[in-house]
Amino acid sequence: MLEDNILTAHGWVRGYLRHENGKVVGIEGSPCNPADNDLPYLLPGFIDLHVHGGGGKDIMQGAQAFDTITRTHLRFGTTALLATTMTAPNHDISRVLGALGDFCQTRPSGCARVLGVHLEGPFINPGKLGAQPNFAHTALMAEVEDYLNLAPIKVITIAPEIAGHIELIGTLSARGIRMQLGHTLGSYEEGVAALDAGASSFTHLYNAMSPLHHREPGILGAALAHARFAELIPDLLHVHPGAIRAALRAIPCLYCVTDSTAATGMPDGEYQLGSHTVTKCLGGVRLADGTLAGSTLTMDQALRNLVKIGLPLAEASQRLSQFPADYLGLEDRGRLQPGSWADCVRLDRSLNITAVMVEGEALDFQNA
Rank of each mutant, 00 (worst) to 15 (best):
E20P: 05
Q105M: 11
D332K: 14
L351D: 11
N5P: 12
P211L: 13
T138K: 12
A174D: 15
C344G: 08
P40T: 11
A368Q: 10
K280G: 01
H73F: 08
N352Q: 14
L129Q: 01
D364A: 04
F46R: 06
P234G: 02
E190P: 05
L328T: 06
E270V: 12
Y255F: 15
I47L: 14
G294N: 03
R18H: 15
F202Q: 03
G218C: 09
R113L: 13
L150Y: 09
E331K: 13
V257D: 01
S201F: 02
N33L: 11
N149H: 12
I69A: 06
H73R: 01
F202G: 01
E3L: 15
L181A: 04
T258Q: 07
R346N: 05
K57T: 04
S321K: 01
L347A: 11
D38R: 13
Q322R: 08
R335N: 05
A250Y: 03
V117Y: 02
D300W: 09
T138A: 15
D343Y: 01
F202C: 04
L287Y: 10
G62W: 05
Q318N: 09
V257Q: 00
I47D: 03
A136E: 00
A136D: 02
L181S: 08
L205C: 07
Q132E: 03
V307L: 07
Y16M: 08
E190M: 10
V114C: 15
A223L: 06
A225L: 13
L351Y: 13
V144Q: 06
H165S: 04
I177M: 09
S340W: 03
D92R: 12
E167D: 15
A314D: 14
M299Y: 07
G98Q: 08
H238G: 01
G55S: 11
A159Y: 02
Y41D: 10
Q64N: 09
Y255D: 05
L2V: 13
P89C: 04
L185R: 04
G121K: 01
F66Q: 03
E143A: 11
L81S: 06
G310A: 09
L254E: 01
A83I: 00
V155L: 08
L363D: 05
R304F: 14
L330W: 10
A288R: 15
L303G: 00
A342T: 08
P241S: 12
A302N: 07
L220D: 00
G170H: 06
